[in-house]
Design a protein around this nucleic acid. Structure first.
Length: 392
DNA sequence: TCTGGGGTCCTAGGACCC
DNA sequence: TCTGGGGTCCTAGGACCC
């Protein structure tokens, strides 16, 4: 594959920054977004924001401002723990409708400049700038990397003008490196890594910085004495494959050398749609049967609503249960035909429930619909069914 | 004081068919 | 009676990401 210019754009402290647009008086203060969605609690009185002090419940932090991060409070952390570290930090409930609005705004602003955008969730995207860099060859700077920086600056300015929010951009020859690069200079940074700079800029980083190496792999690597990307790059591939399997081991090694050929994918169909909820208190399968049944049915109704709104039906219905000890089990059942009907989903999920042990209290209940199809689209072939031009 | 909710992808075993 | 592969679907669990 010839040289590409791939950008990764990451919005800075996205949810918290959107909240600061609404409550500018909180700027400069430690603020965290998270906790359970509040039911129509209304606008808090100015100067009367809730703080973390005395928080009790099962919420986690979804985003924290940089001032809050300085106090050791990061996303994913339980709010009870965060309250001990930063009792005076302001706690705001998440408003996903607002975040989705701003998400659309910033993505539209980017697409107006560079159309080849891959969605990676609400607050980040990949952008293939290769064609744009070529287009600007005539009028722009002679050095393509200088043109790349100019394009990134344009994108950053446009995002700021349309949303009043800042973002960080990494540009490199591929997605893997760009994801790493965008984090090097946060917030509001632009970072470039050329192929010949991988050793200098990437090898000193912890392996955990590589997208795809999570907490488990990190621990295993540590046990092998591998802490940095450079150490991973120098590790024996055979050793990595022995410990992580052919596919993952070989990938890890390639990743450490900065190799990644994945294209920027501008559209993909969803594979599954699900709803789940963690209870405020663990529920007992029999003692809390009524409440459990009501929530179970409600989840099915919501999944069905999501399917209908998005125009999908699915034939694999899944149930997820997390027990009080955090152990999670799943069961699923594949129907003869796809459905988007709440009652049909409820029946199938009910069958799944019969196959789950109910000897512990339950922390979480979830319902999932997979093997999605667009209703009206050609159905999957039924085994044994005659088809024209069959190759059997 | 335990750890949200929405996803994707991978692995592995068994069923079933050719 | 025993011994074969390959391919696909289904199911369960787990790692990882935002």
């Amino acid at each position: 594959m010839s040289a590409r210019y791939i950008a990764h754009l990451d919005m800075d402290a996205f949810y918290a920054s959107v909240e600061l647009l609404r409550y500018p008086q909180l700027r400069g203060m430690p603020v965290v977004v998270g906790g359970r969605r509040r039911a129509a609690q209304g606008e808090p009185d100015p100067g009367e924001f809730a703080t973390l002090r005395g928080y009790s419940g099962r919420g986690v932090i979804t985003t924290s401002t940089y001032e809050a991060r300085a106090l050791g409070v990061f996303s994913g952390m339980g709010l009870m723990k965060a309250a001990k570290l930063a009792p005076d930090a302001v706690l705001l409930p998440a408003d996903f409708d607002a975040y989705r609005r701003y998400s659309r705004m910033f993505k539209d602003a980017v697409r107006a400049i560079a159309p080849l955008v891959e969605d990676r969730g609400i607050d980040e995207i990949y952008i293939d700038l290769t064609d744009l860099v070529a287009d600007r060859a005539a009028e722009g700077a002679p050095d393509p990397w200088a043109r790349v920086r100019a394009i990134a600056t344009d994108i950053q300015r446009s995002v700021r003008e349309t949303t009043q929010l800042s973002c960080s951009i990494g540009i490199t020859p591929n997605k893997l490196l760009s994801k790493i690069a965008s984090e090097l200079n946060k917030p509001a940074g632009i970072s470039v890594i050329r192929s010949d700079e991988v050793e200098r800029l990437v090898w000193p980083l912890a392996v955990r910085k590589v997208n795809g190496i999570g907490p488990k792999a990190n621990l295993k690597l540590e046990a092998l004495g591998i802490r940095t990307v450079g150490e991973l790059a120098h590790a024996d591939v055979a050793l990595l494959i022995a410990h992580f399997g052919q596919s993952y081991g070989a990938w890890m090694h390639a990743a450490a050398h900065g190799r990644d050929e994945r294209p920027v994918v501008t559209y993909s169909e969803p594979k599954s749609i699900s709803r789940e909820t963690t209870f405020e208190d663990d529920l007992h399968a029999f003692r809390d049967k009524e409440k459990l049944t009501r929530i179970f049915t409600e989840l099915c109704v919501r999944v069905a609503g999501d399917l209908q709104r998005k125009g999908y039906a699915g034939k694999t219905i899944g149930l997820k249960i997390r027990y009080d000890n955090f152990k999670t089990v799943t069961r699923d059942l594949t129907l003869a035909a796809p459905t988007q009907d709440a009652a049909a989903i409820r029946r199938a999920a009910g069958e799944c429930l019969k196959r789950v042990p109910l000897d512990r209290r339950i922390r979480l209940l979830g319902v999932r619909v997979g093997a999605l199809a667009k209703p009206g689209a050609a159905p999957d072939r039924v085994p044994g069914q005659q088809t024209l031009l069959s190759e059997d």
